[in-house]
Design a protein around this nucleic acid. Structure first.
Lengths: 216, 216, 216, 216
DNA sequence: GATGAATGAGCCTTCATTCAT
DNA sequence: GATGAATGAAGGCTCATTCAT
């Protein structure tokens, strides 16, 4: 399944001479799946609803994705890859200054490419099922690990510069949980705050954790 | 439904001897429901599985809870009430010192009464569906609001003592998201950390946010 | 079952030293059954609803009637016996004049003892199931036959007096169907006519069929 | 629902070739439903039995009819429309002579298209539930009203010709109840009479009500 | 590619019936 | 007598999946 999942990765892009219509159709279905997860949650997501949103027959959805399980896996893989590319791209443009990298990382997490209400809601739906969905780790485990490793490296750099001896893993975890948490709040709260408040919350978290070392 | 939900409140306890067996059975089913949510997630939770774990017929589950929807709502209400009583009890024993209150609050969130793997996993399952489960807000909205209000009041007190001008709501949010986040990590991660590490993470978060004002 | 059914016959009355409360309770349940059939129809009639209307537990309903099937059979037997006694009593008071007998018969069919909305609706419910309810014939077959025989005898008498040669069975059938039909109309029509109109319809039918021989 | 029901109208017929197989299947299921109602009555009619008789899966029954409730409503709508078309067609061929119209109407009610044992039994099943089945009036109310109106108009014409002053509505009612009643007798009686006897009964009823004005 | 008829597993739910108290 | 907890058979319904066209 992992192989099947990774071979969609539309981020690596058209190396194979696939017809554009095929990928376009697949992308269309994946977006419909994200919408469906956002609107109805994981437990109420059905192929019929996905097909309705994609304006195609449910038969065609399965023609492209073989099974519901695979569709949900590929949709998760799509979002994971998109998220991964997004933050990798953001820090790639940095000169190696850890504070600038952290700043770029936080801004990236709230960039319109990855941070839409539908996608946040879809992430929340996946997280709720992650524990009983082994494929979640297969798809996201390594990427999540990479993200954590970068956050920890940045934390360590910033703490070193300040001569502090806090545990960088703990600070990295607080940062990550604060960011993920604002995403869930936006999805879940009855009167959620805005994306701007969410981003500011994470930035403030970074300021409080790293003090003068994070002058943003 | 809310009325129906709140009147189960097994926390107020069995005054009538006649209903004792009734309440005992209901509690048994609620525990089986928590286990089921933990093991299978929201989307795969079935009445048959709940009944199997409670070692009763599925008919009896519905005899006591009328419908699956109501069972899930009452189970959530049970956990929400239990969680609420737990932290309220923890700060009730404090003398009014905000740091001590915050410390008690954090310890309470990791007390065995509310912090078991099954319950954490059940919470995660509910959070994943919360957005498309209107009853979630009906049951948890007010209690969540109270918890946030207390955290904000404590944050404000601690900031005032230090003469700092950060936004207490933001700090309260970071604390809450860090705590909730560790709960989700324990449920979701492939190699999760321990309850001890989780609690220490939240304590460290409080130390970093409030510095000398949180000497624990 | 037939034996079981006939031994309730509360019309034959207390020969056995049954406790009054037993028969009273049974009658109460039968009345609740009639109401239930009237309100919900045969297919939606449940023991729980019968018990609710009789203000007793469903367990007690079965204690008295052994099974739902038997309860419905005994209720039908009760109504059949009541109806039978009613018209037999009505013509018993007549001097043997067929027109007077027919008049008494028609009036009896609309007497308050047997002609209430609930009972009419219950009869309609039974008729709808009669074809696939073998017990219906066991309970009502003979009594219906007796009623038809009396109607035919009266018809024959009246025709003889007039020297007409129509088929008395046919005229008896038209009379019977008109009477039964008004009962169904009252139950079934969206804007049903009154009992008075129903009775007048049957009387008019008799007048048209027997002309001068039926001067009522 | 009424809209949904009326749009099946297989009487308007298959103009689109694409839906032909769809309509054929629906008709097949409706016929199986009529058989099921006839054999088992309303209360014991199940989708599984309908599917078994139609030799398809129960899933397909619901695919075409959405729910059992709707299937039963559409089956009733089918029979009501078929009955309506049948008698409308019968009097349409008449020259306006009321006696001839009445004669055609009575013959039509016993024509093989509408008067089969299965259909009579299905009608009886519906009548038994009509009182607690609001959809019955929605489907049949207007059509029944039209039938009654025609019968009353014919009655009035015939009475006028004879210079009689009986109430035409009452005579129309007697005719209608006699006809409906013979249908029920055929379904319900332990030893029912034949269709021929039934038709002759209604014709005799017309003769007795309208005398010389109905010379058939 | 694309549609939608068709299947059947699995679910929730109802409800008659049993039985301990 | 009387209650209500408990069971399980049976039904309606959803929906992923298959497949003929």
């Amino acid at each position: 399944m992992v192989g099947q999942v990774s071979d969609i990765a539309p981020h690596i892009e058209q190396r194979l001479p696939r017809t554009q219509s095929r990928d376009a159709r697949r992308l269309q279905v994946i977006e419909a799946t994200i919408e469906t997860l956002a609107e109805r949650g994981y437990s109420r997501a059905t192929l019929t609803e996905v097909a309705r949103r994609a304006k195609i027959s449910h038969g065609l959805v399965l023609f492209h994705f073989q099974s519901k399980e695979n569709l949900l896996a590929e949709t998760l893989a799509f979002m994971a890859e998109e998220y991964h590319q997004n933050w990798k791209g953001a820090i790639a443009g940095q000169t190696g200054d850890p504070a600038a990298e952290l700043h770029a990382l936080i801004l990236a997490d709230f960039a319109p490419a990855v941070c839409t209400r539908h996608k946040l809601a879809a992430w929340t739906a996946y997280w709720g099922e992650a524990q009983s969905l082994p494929v979640y780790q297969e798809i996201c485990g390594q990427k999540d690990g990479e993200y954590i490793a970068v956050l920890e490296r940045i934390s360590q750099d910033l703490l070193l510069r300040a001569g502090r001896h806090n545990d960088p893993a703990t600070l990295a975890r607080i940062l990550r949980l604060t960011q993920e948490g604002t995403w869930m709040d936006i999805t879940t709260m009855s009167e959620p705050y805005s994306f701007d408040v969410a981003r500011e919350t994470v930035l403030e978290c970074a300021r409080l954790l790293f003090r003068d070392q994070f002058p943003y």
